[in-house]
Each structure stands twice: as structure tokens, then as C-alpha cells.
Amino acid sequence: MTVYRLITLRPPDPQGSGDSRRAQSIVRALEGAGHTVVLAPILAPGQTLFSSLLRPTALMHLIWVLLRYGFTRPLQWVAVQALVPGNPSGELSPHQTAFYVTSRVAPPEPPAGFVIDFVDSLAANARGRSHRGPGVSAFWRREARLLERWERELAAKSMLATAVSETECATIAPNVAAVPLEIGPRLRPSPEAEARGYQSQDPTVLFAGNLYYHPNAEAARWVLEVLTPALVSRGWRREQVVLAGRRPGRALAAMAERAGATLLADVPDLQNVIEGASVCLAPLLLGSGIQFKVLDALQAGVPVAMSAQANRGIGLSDSDMVRVVERKAEPFCDAIDILLTRRNRVVPADVHSLLASASPAAVQHRWRSLTDAAGR
């Protein structure tokens, strides 16, 4: 059996951000196969990348990394490497294998025989952000170009490279293998968590996610500025529009207050909030990969109105549980109305297949198959 040193930005966390949930899935799969996992997160629990970079030692190392790699590597990689005074793989023993979760944490010269899970393509994410205004487009075009080169370089050197969907794999490199996201069986929350959750007797539309993540924050602003007034014009009350997630910024909180929407920040059990919603929203224009918010809602039996971007890599068709529409107020309002009226839902075949592929047993079997084959 192999000893894997799992290098991540944040510690594995089943309730955390997407890469933290992914890392937790990897730990379960590797340990379930009899391997040993040594965790090596760059950030401590509760730390943020920005606050960590403000430490004097990190600032000094940031200057060094910028001078050494700033012209040839993406700046989001530079920012993460500034928090690593040495190579995060440098403590590998001869019997350990480095396993990187996202390209941001891989060192300039990874050791031989490493494994990398890109999760999704950061280059595709950056390309999407390059269309969001003249002030930042040049920066994000540069990031996309350098990220694409870095991702291809890592994939070519790796013993095994993975991502969450065939779409993401094809975007990164030909030798990248798909491993779906994992959604575990739904466990009832503790009475304390349930009491602190949010349940409404009225229909609610919910946008849930990590609200500090830029693509989520951008979608949340659209919900408040565009969708909420359109729903109000159709007879909805403002408080029936619900935003829930971790670490909403002050500007977003102030916007929610002005809009009269319900903002649930840092709830202890986000899945409990999802289960109480009538329709979940995924009106994303930015980002990449597969959205946990879509999987979590469908697993809970809650229908989803989403944009084509949120459907990227999933490929669901319109049904009693799903509507994929253009991100404009009227199409989203129409989709919500349709989903609310179809209460006797039969789970369509594509949703059933998606959830089956994301089950713990299926995902862990996929990880074991790939790591066993790579280690031969």
C-alpha cells in the first residue's frame, strides 16, 4: 500500500468549499483502499489566503516568488506559493507519494511520480472572467494563458491526473481522467443545527454556496438586483428570496438588506436550508467544473433553475426537476413557476444517473481503480 502526502490549500472539510470537500472525498477513498494519507494543508482551519498573505514573512516571500516566477506563472499560483517557504513536497520520505489538490498548490518542480487532482480547469475559470469588463480583461487573459500552460505541464509530468468531469478533462489535457464529485448520504442534522437552520411555510427560492467565492458572489448580486424585483412584480414577497452560505462580504450583505431578501450567513447545516427550499437557483455566468449546489439540491429532491454555465460538465435536460435557461429575469421567473407547479416529480433518468455516479461507493471505486492502475 502507498503513503500519500495530500497537499491542499485548505484542510479537507465535508462542509467546506469545493476543493475542501473534494479533498475529503479523496481521503476517504484512499484510506478505504488501505492507503495511508498524511495531510499537508497550506492554510490552517479558518485562515484565508488574503489574511495569510498580510503576514510579514509571507509578504517577503511573495516578493521573492514574484521576482522569480511572476513573468512565467499565474499570479494566483504565485500567491499560494508565497505561503510555502519551502517546497510543500519537500518533507516527502522515500516511501511517500505527493498528491496535489488543484494546480495552485503544486511546487515549481514537483517530485517524480506525483498525482494531481485539478478538480476543474482554473484556466477555463480565468477565461470566463476575462470577459467581465475592460479594466480586468487583460489581467484575466494573461492568467488564463499561463494557467493553461501550467496545467498542461503538470498533467504531462504526473503519474496520474484527474478532474471532475469529461468536459474539464478535455479542457486541461488529453491524459486527464474524470472522477465525479462525491455527495454522501443525507444525514439528519442535530436538533441544535436544525433549530438554527431556516424553514419557511411559504415557497422560497434559494441561492446557496460559498458567498466569498467570486462566481457565487457575482451570481448572488444578480439574484438581488435583477431576479428579486422580477419575482416581486409577479407577487412574491422579497423575503421569499433566500441567499445562504459562508462569509458573505459586507457589500453583498448591504445589498441583500436593501433588496429585502433573506440572507443566511454561515449557517451550521447548509443542506438543511436546501431541503427547506422550494426551488434552488444556479444562475452562474462564471466559474468552471461541476457545481456542488446543483448536486446537493437534486439529491435533496429540490428542483433547480440554472444557467447553461452551471450545467457545464453536467449536461442535464429540462424536466420536472431541472430547467436550464438564459440568465435573464423573465426566463428564470418562468422556470421557477414551472418547477413549482410540478409537485408529483419522477426523478428523470439523467438526474438519476448523475446522482448515482456521485455516490460515495461509485466515486471511491473510481479513485481506487485509477490509483491502483497508476501505481502498477
Rank of each mutant, 00 (worst) to 15 (best):
L286C: 05
L286R: 03
G287F: 11
S288I: 09
S288F: 13
G289S: 06
G289W: 08
G289V: 00
G289L: 06
I290G: 01
Q291R: 14
F292T: 04
K293L: 06
L295C: 08
A297V: 04
L298Q: 01
Q299N: 04
A300E: 00
A300S: 06
G301V: 01
G301M: 01
G301H: 02
V302A: 02
V302R: 08
V302S: 00
V302M: 00
P303T: 03
P303G: 10
P303N: 11
V304K: 04
V304R: 02
V304M: 00
M306R: 01
M306Q: 02
S307T: 08
S307D: 00
S307M: 02
S307I: 01
Q309D: 05
A310Q: 00
N311W: 01
N311H: 02
R312W: 13
R312C: 13
G313H: 10
I314N: 02
I314A: 02
G315M: 09
G315V: 09
G315E: 06
G315W: 04
L316G: 02
L316T: 00
L316H: 06
L316K: 06
L316S: 03
L316W: 10
S319T: 07
D320W: 09
D320A: 15
M321C: 10
M321I: 06
M321R: 12
V322L: 03
V322K: 03
R323Y: 05
V324F: 10
V324R: 08
V325R: 11
V325M: 05
E326D: 10
E326M: 04
K328H: 08
A329L: 10
P331L: 08
P331R: 08
F332M: 10
F332D: 03
C333Q: 09
D334E: 14
A335L: 02
A335F: 03
A335P: 02
I336S: 09
D337R: 15
D337Y: 14
I338K: 11
I338F: 11
I338D: 12
I338T: 12
L339G: 05
T341F: 09
R342K: 15
R342D: 13
R343T: 13
R343N: 02
N344T: 12
N344A: 14
R345G: 09
R345K: 13
R345L: 12
V346A: 14
V346Y: 13
P348L: 13
A349L: 10
A349N: 04
D350K: 12
S353E: 08
L354D: 01
L354W: 09
L355I: 03
S359E: 07
A361W: 07
A362H: 10
A362E: 06
V363M: 07
V363P: 01
V363D: 07
Q364R: 12
W367T: 05
R368N: 11
S369V: 06
S369F: 07
S369M: 14
S369I: 02
L370Q: 05
L370S: 05
T371M: 13
T371Q: 09
T371R: 10
D372S: 15
D372I: 09
A373K: 14
A374E: 04
A374K: 09
